[in-house]
């Protein structure tokens, strides 16, 4: 066991972990932050995406110990303290970008990283960027719309592809 400390959603946290403990396990089981999900064991589904030092990372691909000292943001850290949704979260609700909600935390975190990199992505760029996030419910149509809307573009531009 080794001890690890990091900042999660603005709060300093620490814990004892085994060398093989994944960041996603540390967050879910150690910190009770169950919004970050596990949908696969081959690092492909993206249900576990969080931000580590501002970058989108699949939390099942790094060990908790590797995040020593890092600034981690999870889905629980996206809305304002008063409950006001982040604009991406709000756009997902407005455009029905989620059904069962299981892929949603990862989708929102990936979308946030995309918009940081590319504030006005085209529908094709959005689809391309989401290559590492699998959704089985929505057919992605409304996810693309939601991200267009969150970037201040016309959600109906999806049809123009």
């Amino acid at each position: 066991m080794t001890s690890v400390s990091m900042t999660v959603n603005g709060k300093p946290v620490s814990g004892e972990v085994e060398g093989r403990t994944l960041l996603v396990e540390f967050l879910r089981e150690g910190q009770g932050l169950t919004g970050t999900h596990v949908g696969c064991d081959t690092s492909q589904c993206g249900a576990c995406v969080v931000h580590v030092n501002g970058e989108a990372v699949k939390a099942c691909t790094i060990f908790a110990a590797e995040a020593e000292g890092a600034e981690v943001t999870t889905i629980e850290g996206m809305a304002e303290a008063d409950g006001t949704l982040h604009p991406i979260q709000q756009a997902f609700q407005d455009h029905h970008g989620l059904q069962c909600g299981f892929c949603t935390p990862g989708m929102v975190m990936s979308a946030a990283a995309l918009l940081k990199e590319n504030p006005q992505p085209s529908p094709a760029e959005i689809r391309d960027y989401l290559e590492g996030n699998i959704c089985r419910c929505t057919g992605y149509h409304n996810i693309v719309k939601a991200i267009l809307a969150a970037s201040g573009q016309d959600a109906n531009a999806i049809a123009a592809e």
Binding site: E76, L85, D94, G101
Partner: peptide, 21 residues
């Protein structure tokens, strides 16, 4: 009507079975 269940799913506060310990 916008979905009310979305709020918990979007904020990471859903209660899926693996969240139960």
């Amino acid at each position: 009507t916008k979905r009310r269940e979305d709020i918990r799913f979007l904020t990471g506060t859903g209660n899926y079975t693996d969240d139960i310990n």
